[in-house]
Amino acid sequence: MQALLHAIVEPGFFADGAVQTAAALGGVVAVVAGLIGVFTVIRSQAFAGHALSDIGSAGGSSAYLIGLAPLWGFVGISVLAAAAMERIGVQRARGRDVATGVVLGVGFALASLFLYLGMTYHNASGEIPTILFGSVFTLSASDLPLVMGLGAVALLVVLTLYRPLLLASVSPELAAARGVRVRLVGGAYLLALAITVALCDLTIGAILSTALLVGPAAAALRLTGRPHRAALLAAGISLACTWLGLLLAWDSFYWPPLRHGWPVSFFIVTLVLIAYLAAGALARGQTKRG
């Protein structure tokens, strides 16, 4: 078994400390992203999720400027932006894109400002690709407790609100008629989404994090029509893509042209896309047979 593994994976993968940290952090974030992402897709809030992550780059770069860990910047700005979206009306079908667009515009303006300041005054040119594209290998084991804590908060919100959230996602009207406070539930979900996006920003970067949030969920929704199964399947796909991505990135150290390793986020996002396409093919196969 060991020999077989060594034949396909460069030696040292499972023993390396950075790999273990990356696998743990990436794994936690992947599971949270998959579970939360299912509701993002059902509620048609993928654009909002994407905007939150783009804005995250403003948070990451400003945190760097004032000497904080990027995760605090990601979480802070993401939650603030989610609150702004909620105020402007992201929960109304017609207000959704407007609210998201407005907040996205402001976020980009801030991000470009902070990135510029960071490059000019702090010579942060090495940090910026990390903020934008993430690198789970550069994270340290000391990030793990905070990442797990934040992930647990997001999961707790969604698990606690599971039934009313699902009902409100099917039809706000049906939920309201049963006494569900639809706006409160939606607002709480937005908070969980903001936290999740911040976690994805950290592991795969602000630019790519939507892919991890929405991709596995969209793939799962093609494969199953049941709510619990979709959530678990999305978490599974997300975890598989992340871990396989880590493995390939590790392997790619010996690939051409640089012998320098390809970015891990590239592999994760590509695998997510492959999973999504494969799920589509599988679903078509199912309907043909059925």
Binding site: L159, L167, A175, G179
Partner: peptide, 15 residues
């Protein structure tokens, strides 16, 4: 699933 949500869709947690 939608009919099951008619039993207790307003309650917290997972059924």
């Amino acid at each position: 699933d939608l009919v099951a949500l008619g039993i207790d869709g307003q309650r917290l947690g997972v059924a």
